[in-house]
Design a protein around this nucleic acid. Sequence first.
DNA 1: TAAACTGATGTAACCGGTTACATTAAAGCA
DNA 2: TGCTTTAATGTAACCGGTTACATCAGTTTA
Lengths: 351, 351
Amino acid sequence: MTRKSSSVTIRDVARHAAVSVATVSRFINRTAPVSQEVAERIQQVMLDLNYKPHVAARQLATRRTLTVGLVIHNMHTDFFAPLLSGIEAVVSENQYNLLVATYDYKTHHHRPLPIGPHNTDGLLSYADCLNEEQLTDLCRVKFPVVLIHRTAPPQLRVPFVTVENKAATYKLISHLIETHGRRSIIFLRGPHEQEDSRWREQGYRDALEEHGISFNPDLMLCGEFNRHGAYTALKKFLARRHPPFDAIFSGDDDAAIGVYKALREAGLRIPEDVSVVGFDDARLSTFLNPPLTTVRAPTQLVGQTAASILFDLLQERTVETCTLLSTEIVLRRSCGCTYENPGEPFQDVVR
Amino acid sequence: MTRKSSSVTIRDVARHAAVSVATVSRFINRTAPVSQEVAERIQQVMLDLNYKPHVAARQLATRRTLTVGLVIHNMHTDFFAPLLSGIEAVVSENQYNLLVATYDYKTHHHRPLPIGPHNTDGLLSYADCLNEEQLTDLCRVKFPVVLIHRTAPPQLRVPFVTVENKAATYKLISHLIETHGRRSIIFLRGPHEQEDSRWREQGYRDALEEHGISFNPDLMLCGEFNRHGAYTALKKFLARRHPPFDAIFSGDDDAAIGVYKALREAGLRIPEDVSVVGFDDARLSTFLNPPLTTVRAPTQLVGQTAASILFDLLQERTVETCTLLSTEIVLRRSCGCTYENPGEPFQDVVR
DNA sequence: TAAACTGATGTAACCGGTTACATTAAAGCA
DNA sequence: TGCTTTAATGTAACCGGTTACATCAGTTTA
């Protein structure tokens, strides 16, 4: 591996400017006043020598990394880009760096966490990438953590940011029942540990109950929150040819893509034969054919908010422990709604 | 800001294990043999004390960060997720960390680069985020850099990874001309500095010339490689109602979305009135209505390849200076092709 | 048997910053 | 004038690792 060449240190600067290293450090960090004349001399020398402070040395001395970390389980999904974009905006605004790592305790349990106190000043953790033990360990050393799309174990009091899942799902399912007369609605679950999925299921059950429809466990499939999982699960279900159904809650938008495919292959029309709805309002959902009725989750805002809270923690300000961002349902054509909209697919009906 | 609490140092471990710090360090890094018995003692103490080496201290001592950086101009685009995903895979495989930053010399020129030798062991830089001066500076200190989607200034010999733009565009435009009889093809440029755009334009011009169609500068618009830029540019063009056209090369897939919208608002049908084609084969392009004919760029592979080359540089292996990944055209419906495909939109015709 | 080598370990300098504490000169005040 | 305060600066310890060099016992080689 290459050694860093020709590093100019603070001592070089001090020598050329004929002052002590302390003075240079003070000037750089503005931690104490420095005379005008000396300041200019140092400034000039720094430019001449092209001096760049050595980050690791500074980190070692101050015990701060000026870096925050993000742990997420993978980067393929469409969900990831807006989330990261929101986070990055806040991080760079605070002049911090962002370390990203894919990690999932279920698949990487043999490995230590790639991000932690040794690395960063704080951590954003998505969904169930870390298990409770890992979270507990971090809390024990008072390491600032903000959870995204999962609530904190109650004894820990870790702040978290997520979106309103239950009420939106309730609203969406109610819409299917009331407006489109659907009564046999398949529910595609996400990964088992994912909280979002559990809340959505609760909204689904509540909506059924509210409308006097009894819950049918045979209509619960496991879509895994992705197109392939959803496709496979639905395909298997369709092969059984029972029970009958007239609508599908896909779990999320990516899964809806798999649903579309499976239905199309089975010769079923959307929405004439089956209403389909999703969750997230991913970038592509407007462009599906038919455009997907779904729930708009403010993913970028989730990222922004989580990052802001993390910085509040770093500055030891008091923070909101639980942040639930509101969602809204977006009616497009896949549920059976029709609407005139020449500019489609740029505009939607949002409720 | 919080001070890191309770840090267990290597000296604590050494003391508890009744050995010297050097021995502990050797054991941790396997840099010299340590007797079985001592090894076990150290191992046990490290577990008991929950010792984690301090990364900054190690970085300072070794002058290596075990981190590579990625500079990109923004994270919203669909392009970004597969790119990052490819990079991250290689980075974590090499047990390195990844620092990401959004930066663009055009908008951030007042700020120093957030990523550099002070930070990382090497850098991946997307397109024209860095200008030539910045690249030259990095080269001067022999800092390993790999460019993504841009070629290196000739005097620098920085390795780069990009995709075949010209030949693919040539093929696509030829397809429009030969198969669909199009002759007045609008070309939507990307950002001016972006090399991809220039190569695609060259492919476009070559195809026209080859087919005896004279180049018409009035058909060149600036779509900026995004839906809004493309929409605006095309809208303005349509308002002028001239010259006539029968096809549009959108520049990239995201721009195609804006194109679809503008055409639809003008009452023009795709592909009956106008053939539309894109570039990239973004995740959503299959799902557009009609599905978009485009060029498949192996974006994730670009990320992977660039990262691999960077690690080759770090290990001082010799590397390929220029890597041009091949692309292929994907025929869907927006150009005028029709094909039977019950499983659509999962399968495409790839040439 | 002496010399050379090997394996296991310790000592202490070093990486490049920050900062507590000490020092000095100048300014403010009674 | 003498004392206190303040501004500007220097000295050196410290952050937590790595590693060159030294040591020493035990083994191999001449």
